[in-house]
Amino acid sequence: MKFAFALKTVCVLGIFTWLSACSDDESQVTNIRLAHTLDVQHPVHMALEHMNSELLRISNGKMALRIFPSGQLGSEREIIELLQIGSLGMTKVSASSLEAFVPQMKVFSLPYLFQDQTHFWNTLQGEIGQRLLDAGSQYRVKGLGYFDAGSRSFYTTKQKVEKPQDLNGLKIRVMNSQSAVEMVNTIGGAATPVSFGELYTALQQGIVAGAENNPPSFYYSKHYEVSQYYILDEHTSIPDVIIIGTHMWNNLSDQEQAWLTQAMHLATEYQKQLWAESTQMSLEKVKEAGVTVLKADKSLFQNSVQPIFDELKGSDLEPLINEIKALGQANE
């Protein structure tokens, strides 16, 4: 199958191949394959569809995204690796999934780093956020922008959690992220990495006693069907990141790069709105399904994770942490 690729005459065949034959014909469309792991009803997927619509509009039909949702082309890590070798164009991944490729992204997994949404977005859409997007270039990925992934909170199948001590000894599913493991273990839980696709069964069979995620993911994954409690402690705000392989980016013309950058900006603003609406709807739906949604005393949880920040004193990450905290204080 052929996919246009700006002003090059390359044709590569294979299931994961996205590069295609191109010509000097200006009417040729530049298609970029974009894969992600989320359901088509998820607000992130809808925002990516919006990004494609805007890209088609801005470029007068000369540039488009071809989106492969629901993990069709692999897990987040597998998709990132496809970007690195030039076998895929773009993807949406959690900042946590980028930790292994862009170590500075670990900062987003730190609990209670951001004071509020204003502080969060001032960081992401300012100089700090751009610097982190650019930090992936040496790993052959370039960040284009961020999507809101809300705040992650704990949910459990049987045991009500209202304070950190209630997590003591409970097996809590976390992403395959050292930062996530450390956070849950520090609070007192027993962090247990499990793939997202296997989590429903793990909760149902009691392999884990709970997990942590944002409200839309809790709802769309149907984890509320096997979980009785959801406590809104909102321990981390880990954004999604839209990334493009540097091989893809470097082969786009300046005009195509500008089109894609503009479409990214428009999609971000659209996704913020979708996310807020989806969060409210998701909480209403899980309550209707019988889940007890609890408000946490965040100060208790904040105190429980202070050892994480104490251990980071003198580390390479400390200057970035202080910079982010200072930005929040400046906006008080």
Score class of each variant (00 low, 15 high):
2 K>P: 12
4 A>P: 15
4 A>T: 11
5 F>N: 04
5 F>A: 04
9 T>C: 01
9 T>L: 02
10 V>W: 12
13 L>D: 14
16 F>L: 11
18 W>M: 10
18 W>G: 10
19 L>H: 05
22 C>E: 07
23 S>E: 11
24 D>H: 14
26 E>R: 15
29 V>L: 04
30 T>L: 04
34 L>P: 11
36 H>Q: 13
36 H>D: 01
37 T>P: 12
38 L>T: 05
38 L>E: 04
39 D>E: 06
40 V>P: 02
40 V>T: 14
44 V>Y: 14
48 L>S: 02
49 E>W: 05
51 M>V: 06
53 S>I: 02
53 S>Q: 14
55 L>K: 08
56 L>P: 00
64 A>H: 14
67 I>G: 07
68 F>H: 14
69 P>D: 05
70 S>C: 10
70 S>K: 13
73 L>F: 13
73 L>W: 06
73 L>S: 03
76 E>G: 01
77 R>L: 03
78 E>Q: 15
84 Q>F: 01
91 T>G: 05
93 V>F: 01
95 A>P: 07
100 A>P: 04
112 Y>V: 00
115 Q>M: 12
116 D>H: 09
117 Q>I: 07
117 Q>H: 07
118 T>Y: 11
122 N>K: 13
123 T>E: 04
124 L>V: 02
126 G>S: 00
128 I>Q: 04
132 L>P: 00
133 L>Q: 06
140 R>Q: 08
144 L>R: 13
154 F>R: 02
154 F>V: 11
156 T>A: 08
160 K>L: 13
165 Q>G: 05
169 G>K: 10
180 A>T: 04
180 A>N: 13
189 G>L: 03
192 T>K: 04
192 T>E: 01
194 V>L: 14
196 F>K: 05
196 F>R: 09
198 E>N: 15
203 L>H: 06
204 Q>A: 14
206 G>R: 09
206 G>V: 08
209 A>D: 07
210 G>Q: 03
210 G>M: 04
215 P>T: 06
217 S>E: 15
218 F>T: 01
225 E>P: 01
229 Y>W: 13
234 E>P: 00
239 P>M: 06
239 P>S: 10
243 I>W: 00
244 I>E: 09
245 G>S: 15
248 M>Y: 07
251 N>A: 05
253 S>C: 02
259 W>Q: 02
261 T>H: 10
264 M>D: 03
270 Y>H: 14
272 K>V: 06
273 Q>K: 15
277 E>L: 09
279 T>F: 07
283 L>C: 08
283 L>Y: 12
283 L>D: 07
284 E>K: 15
286 V>G: 03
286 V>I: 15
291 V>S: 03
293 V>R: 03
293 V>T: 05
294 L>F: 12
295 K>R: 12
301 F>R: 00
301 F>H: 00
301 F>T: 00
304 S>C: 08
304 S>G: 10
304 S>Y: 04
306 Q>R: 13
311 E>I: 07
312 L>H: 09
313 K>T: 11
314 G>M: 10
318 E>I: 07
321 I>Y: 09
322 N>G: 01
326 A>C: 03
326 A>Y: 08
331 N>I: 08
332 E>N: 04
